[in-house]
Every structure is written in C-alpha cells, then in structure tokens.
Design a binder for these strands. Structure first.
Lengths: 220, 220
DNA sequence: ACCGGAGTTGACCTCAGTTCAACTCGGTGC
DNA sequence: GCACCGAGTTGAACTGAGGTCAACTCCGGT
C-alpha cells in the first residue's frame, strides 16, 4: 500500500523535525510507527534513504505550497508566493526546520534535493516578477536572498520578535535591494525593469503605519 | 602537548571539509593522523566532541581573520572585513564548507557555535558601520544578510562565475538594501544614517543611474 | 633508582544499521 | 475448492563503527 509510505514519511518528518538525524534510531522510527525494523527497509532502502525521502517530500510540499494563484498579476504573485512560504514556515515549523537545518553534514543527495527546491523557488520568483536572468550576478543575488530568507525564518521561528507581515516586508525589501545590487554590478538592459516591490509611502516618525498590507496586498 | 591537538584539529578540518560527518570514521581519522583510536578520545571526548572542536576552531579562525585594521575609518573597515571574509572563503574553501554546510542541524552544540560566530560577525559589521541596532527588524535583516552571504559563498565556490570583487560589491549592495529595508519597516531615528556602502563610480555603457537610490525606498 | 602523570596503545564491548530467510494473507487462474 | 503468487511483514542474526579501559611507554622531578 502507498498510504503506509505516506504515513512513514509524515512520521519521519515529525521525528527528524524534533531530533537530529543520528539521534533518531531505526528502532525509534519502527516503534513510533508500530512496525518492524525490516519494513522500513522494504519501503525505503535504509535509514539514509529514508531521510532523503522525508526531506524530498517536505521540499515537494513546500514548493507546492507556494504555487501561485494564476489569476494574480505577476508582481502580486511574487508577494503571494512569499506569503505562502511564510505561512508554511509558521504552520509546519518542524518540517521547515528539518528542511533547512537538515543538512546532515552535506550529504550530496540531500544537498542536491535542497538545491533543486531552491532553484524551483528561484525560478518561481523570477517568473512571478516577469523576469528571466540567467546572468551570474542575478542568479547569485537571488540565491543569496533565498539563503537569507531561510536564515531569517529559522531565527524568526526561534524568537518571534516581529509580526509576520513585517518579516514579509523586510524580505521583500531585501529582495529588491539584492536585485538592484545585481543590476548595479551587471547592468543588463532589462526589458522589464526591476519592479518596485515595496511601496514605502509617506514614512512618518510613527513606526506603526502599515507595512505593505496584510497577507496579500495586490496593489495595482 | 598542545601541538598534537592543533594537528588533529587541522586534520579534522581537512577530513570534514572533504567528506560528510558520518562518512568519516574514527578509524579514518586515527589512520590519517597516525595515531590510535584511543588517543582521539584522550584529547577530545569522542567523535561528536571532536567535530564540535573542529568547527569551533574553524569559526574562531574565521572570526579572527576578519578582524579589522583599526586604522581604517568605520565604513572602510566594513568593506575590509567583508573582503577578508571572502579571502578566507577562497583560501580555505574546505574549512568554510565544513563550517557552513557542516552540522547546521546535526547538533545544538554546533548550532550554538555557529550562531555565536555569526553574532560576532554581525556585531563586527555593526561596529564597523558605526551603528548599533538592537531592534528586531535590523537584527533580523542583518542575520538574513549573513545567511545570504553564506549561501552566496557556497554557490560561488562551486561555480566561480563572478570575479571576487563583483561578489563583494553584490554583497555590499545587498547589505545596504537589507538595512534600508529594515529602516523602512522600523524607521528609528538613526544618529548615523545608513551609510552608502556601494560607490558605483563610472559604470560602463549602462542605462542606469546607480542603484541604491531607487532600490532603497526611503532614503532619509 | 624510584615515582607520577601525561601520552599512547590495542583489545574488547556495545549497540545501531543492515540483511535475509521465512511467514502471513488476500487475490488469481484453473 | 485448491494451488499458487507476490506484496507486506517480521524477527533473528550479522556487521561494523563508536566508545571504554587496563596497561604500557616515556620523561621530568626527587
């Protein structure tokens, strides 16, 4: 049955989200799932392969979760995507932690899975912005930004010292800064200019004028 | 003697920089160092503790490597610090890989060591910029930026598709963008304004005015 | 010469990951 | 009804890596 596989993946996500890879034994998994050790080897090749499967599945879910609403115009899609990303981070903090902190000492398989997911997210964002940059500076800027988002999310989950919409605005502003920085370094002639993601508006002394908006503002 | 300890740390850095944690056995280490297994347990508590020691040592070196030249004025110190950071990344790619890809998740000890090093770097940069922000938005923006720098460096080491000075400029631009974004979100009255880090100078044929101004909403 | 302790070793122990032969059991063909 | 089949499942046994420890070697101090 395939549901057993899904059940094991779900369980694995919880276990690996809570404790580190080598602190979770096969016996732990088997016991928590009420199955025998051997069955895990039937469904997955071994512990390592199981872990890879768990991480892959979580990455798949994350990428799926930020899938755009095709009705929105491109720039708003990017915003909605990031918002969905943060929602995932918030709701499934364990899964997210397993993903990002999960490195497992740089297992190439894991690294490849994560890098692939990041690439998909990057493509996603580029498409949502209506841009397409194969140029190194832009690619690197975007890659760095994604790394920054991950770091910020992990930190944010631990501290929670900023409302989510502020975090969203912060990340969007950083994205704009990163893309602008890439543009300064490699000033390719864009058919579409780097869009203005954050609309600062009149910035008074009061720190409480609303950041872009709540969850999904589509301006324009 | 203490030199043996240092020798083992150096060796560990090479080994863990090349292969993943659990692909390096105690016997491997012992054999590579021409010592017996037991001796490793004499100097360090065990494999895990050894790994923590290796990472800590590498982090210490990195933080030491970006120590500022006190003669430079603050903004230039920040630039010099980032330059030194990139130099470290380039020269000791293995050590850097061991640090960043290392055990982000593996172990709370490791996470603590790395987070401490990042904190030091962040303080470093803040001091170099002549700023001091305990406010969440700035802290988070800086933390995200550091995560971005790490991601960019790992990617850059793999691809090498940008000259180092361009990478430096890219990162500096992103920093400025991140800080500006934090400022837009939490507009505290800074005694010292966010400094202009990137001095674009005469750029090629480009159709652009240099980025910062429109990358950064609210320049005040 | 004796002592003591740091440095060092190798045999041994333990336990987690892995393998595998065998058992159940619901469906299929005859 | 019956033999068969293959997926699902199990538990015992194997293997190898991490960890322990009593003992040995130096070597400086008394």
């Amino acid at each position: 049955m395939d549901s057993r596989r899904a059940q094991l993946l779900e369980l694995g996500l919880r276990l690996f989200g809570t404790r580190a890879y080598d602190e979770v034994s096969i016996d732990d998994i088997a016991q928590a799932a009420n199955i025998s050790k051997g069955l895990l080897y039937h469904y997955f090749g071994g512990k390592r392969a199981f872990y890879v499967a768990v991480v892959s599945d979580a990455a798949r879910r994350l990428v799926a979760a930020i899938d755009p609403d095709p009705h929105l115009p491109p720039p708003a899609r990017a915003l909605a995507g990031l918002d969905a990303y943060l929602a995932f981070v918030e709701q499934r903090a364990d899964a997210y932690a397993a993903l990002v902190t999960g490195g497992l000492g740089a297992d190439p398989k894991i690294a490849a899975v994560l890098e692939r997911a990041r690439q998909q997210i990057a493509d996603h964002i580029l498409a949502d912005l209506g841009l397409r940059f194969p140029r190194p500076a832009y690619r690197l800027a975007l890659r760095a930004w994604i790394g920054g988002v991950e770091a910020a999310c992990v930190d944010w989950l631990r501290r929670r010292d900023l409302p989510r919409d502020r975090l969203l605005a912060l990340m969007l502003g950083s994205l704009q800064g990163a893309l602008a920085s890439a543009h300064a370094i490699d000033p390719v002639d864009l058919s579409v200019p780097v869009p203005r993601l954050v609309d600062p508006g009149p910035q008074g002394s009061a720190p409480d004028d609303p950041v872009p908006d709540d969850s999904v503002p589509d301006e324009r």
